[in-house]
Design a protein around this nucleic acid. Structure first.
Lengths: 282, 282
DNA sequence: AGCTCTTATGAATCATTGA
DNA sequence: GTCAATGATTCATAAGAGC
């Protein structure tokens, strides 16, 4: 088995990406700093300047993405002056002028959205996951993200993946164990373009931590083991952590050194080093 | 109690609306013919021409809407040539240039979306419900659409409203009765901007029938009894039927005579006429 | 174990205040 | 006037305690 690479670099992705060849990545999945939010912790781009700021980076993304690759952009416009701002709409139109195909818009339904009450607005419980491609013939592995059918499954099987056999309590109260792995094979359904995920309670200190299930889902859907994944706004490192866990090579870029260090500390590579270090001490 | 009016007119809303005064309606809620779909049953507007077709109508909507009123546009762009078409995005930008405020984008999550499988696309399980306003000070009655708290409530209490006392089977299997009405008073939560509604199995023959829960929700949220509701693309008449049921006056417009007749047959007014007719025969 | 209760806490938004 | 900082609002989860 070839050695897996998890490469974390510090800097503006616009500059850092110039060091990479064309057509390298199978998937770019990222959650960039939203306009004007995180003013102190992150760049803090004004809504009016967002498209202008993003476009040259989108152009670099296009260059380093394989023709069969996919770019997933997690973003949501903020409410400004009582209105939804239009910079995301304008961004989509501008990216198409660059040659990107706007293939799909997934909805991430945030089940645990931020609380609050206002006279003319409800709580914001969703974000966009925009899918862009260079060509119509992109790689998509739908079978990898099939989910158990039925509604109870959605709510019950969140923490799968550690064990194949999971104790499952039936709704009629009797309770029984079930071999989920066998059961999965029988009743798998393809998902839709609406994703139901809860945000993670972050003791990670990056302000924009999206839940690991989000990059995980897209990595499974658009790449195979050994493929290359890029997150140009890495933040706390969720994307590269999941890429590593799923046996994909990855590159993560962030402009803030503290996030790069945080991300590095989350990789398996760094943990292995720690273990080896301890072993050497013993 | 003043007599309730349910006024159904046949014709292009662009023409028909000229007969109405300025600032008449408290709510416009509609699901217009989507671009290029419904080609045979409906107008069949090409995606490239959609904005141009819609804008003059949007201008009339603006004229007849009260300053405190709201315009809800249920729409979803179709996939053309492997890409999502951009006419909805362009429509939003164009409407803002007309002076509309783009206040919010609600997501209608279609729990039972259209089945199907494609190599590069999942099933489309959501539509946009775009909220536009003339001014920032629009009427919004958030208390009218509060829902019971908790996850079990969402899934269990769908068919409320007919009885105050509902038999409720607990998840532990014992089963017990509960006075929902009392319980509702204590634990009502405000919803978010994601709506979870199933599409209706349409024996109604309008091809784009949205579920009655959709106009119902917006009518409750943005109008009071006696207010005026407009659906300029009425279709099978769901909007006026719900308006009537909720004691609002309404105007429905459709270009196809058969839909106008279908809609008229669904109103309480027509049913009362039938009853009276029978009574006369007896 | 499993159920119930309690607690903490988030990529938020708006009205108000002060510079 | 505009701009920045602050307070008030509020619910779906996870996690932990207690029975």
């Amino acid at each position: 088995m070839a050695k897996l690479i998890t490469d974390i670099r510090c800097g503006d992705c616009l500059d850092v990406l110039r060091q990479f060849d064309d057509d390298k990545f199978d998937l770019i999945v990222t959650s960039p700093p939203y306009a004007d939010s995180r003013d102190k912790t992150y760049g803090g781009i004004k809504p009016e300047e967002y498209v202008e700021w993003f476009l040259p980076r989108a152009q670099e993304f296009q260059r380093v993405l394989k023709p069969t690759g996919t770019f997933i952009l997690n973003i949501k416009e903020k409410a400004v002056n009582g209105e939804r701002h239009t910079y995301v709409l304008e961004l989509i139109l501008a990216m198409r002028k660059l040659g990107w195909l706007w293939t799909e818009e997934f909805i991430w339904h945030k089940k645990n959205c931020y609380p609050g009450k206002w006279p003319n607005r409800f709580r914001d419980a969703w974000e966009r996951c925009l899918q862009f491609n260079k060509t119509k013939k992109f790689k998509m592995l739908q079978d990898e993200v099939r989910v158990p059918m039925g509604s109870w499954a959605e709510t019950r099987l969140k923490s799968l993946g550690k064990n194949d056999v999971v104790r499952f309590d039936s709704q009629v109260g009797s309770g029984f164990g079930k071999n989920i792995a066998n059961w999965l094979d029988r009743d798998l359904a393809y998902p839709s373009n609406v994703l139901h995920l809860a945000t993670e309670s972050g003791n990670k200190r990056h302000s924009a931590a999206f839940p690991s299930a989000l990059p995980e889902w897209f990595i499974k859907l658009f790449t195979e083991p050994g493929d290359w994944v890029l997150d140009p706004f890495l933040g706390s490192g969720t994307t590269v952590e999941m890429a590593e866990k799923l046996q994909r090579n990855s590159v993560g870029i962030d402009i803030l050194p503290e996030y790069c260090e945080l991300a590095r500390s989350r990789t398996q590579q760094s943990k292995l080093l720690l273990v080896n270090g301890k072993a050497n001490h013993a």
